[in-house]
Design a binder for these strands. Sequence first.
DNA 1: ATGTCGTGGACGCCACGA
Length: 259
Amino acid sequence: MRIATWNVNSVVARLPRLLEWLQDTAPDALCLQETKVADDGFPTDAVAELGYQVATHGDGRWNGVAILSKVGLDDVVRGLAGGPGYPDPEARAVAAGCGGVRLWSVYVPNGREPGHDHYHYKLAWLASLLDVVAADLERTDRLAVMGDFNVAPTDADVWDPAVFAQSTHVTPPERAAVQALLGTGLVDVVPRPLKYDYPFTYWDYRAGNFHKNLGMRIDLVYATPSVAGAVSDAYVDREARKGKGPSDHAPVVVDLDLG
DNA sequence: ATGTCGTGGACGCCACGA
């Protein structure tokens, strides 16, 4: 089974590239983030023509997540039960069982800057994610949390840690919140890069950062040992970041041999 | 070097978020 995650930065603006990528890559399940569309505006028919069912959770202009699947969508849950809002709950998480694996598609709040209200919201959101995942782990040992975590877990995950010294994505509280997910037993499935020496997944649109490979690894796959142990390959599809009209994030693709 | 995108409101640009 092939699973993947991709922050598409608007599923409507990205639709031609998404459809082309689905045909080329053929994941069995794909977690999307930043769909930026309400549920009734999601291009459900277009992905259905390629054989995908979809579980959407969108609010309109901001945020929005979804899971596309060719292998079923069981027990769909939208949002984090008991989670924080800004001030109201936002569309940043959706879960479904796909081919026997429970997938969470998550779009962690950005945080804007350390100390900002949005930063505290980010930490509270991650704490709530931990609670929800821990509850799921009571029921299944086949689970993966996939998406845009907006946190670079280590200094190796940013092109120049000094540039981010006063920024979000690298602060100790953010890294501790992500590390706490690993504390439940989840494993960081680190993909291989298709080029260069580190698997960055995001490059700012500005300043030619992609061309210069000034990126970050913030799109993560955190899987239970039974899923991580079944990984036969994992890679960042940087080809999807090239050319005309890309997202600023590249997809992470994970192949599983679940037996 | 805050240099680029995407969205949507009230327009042919601006505010906002990332």
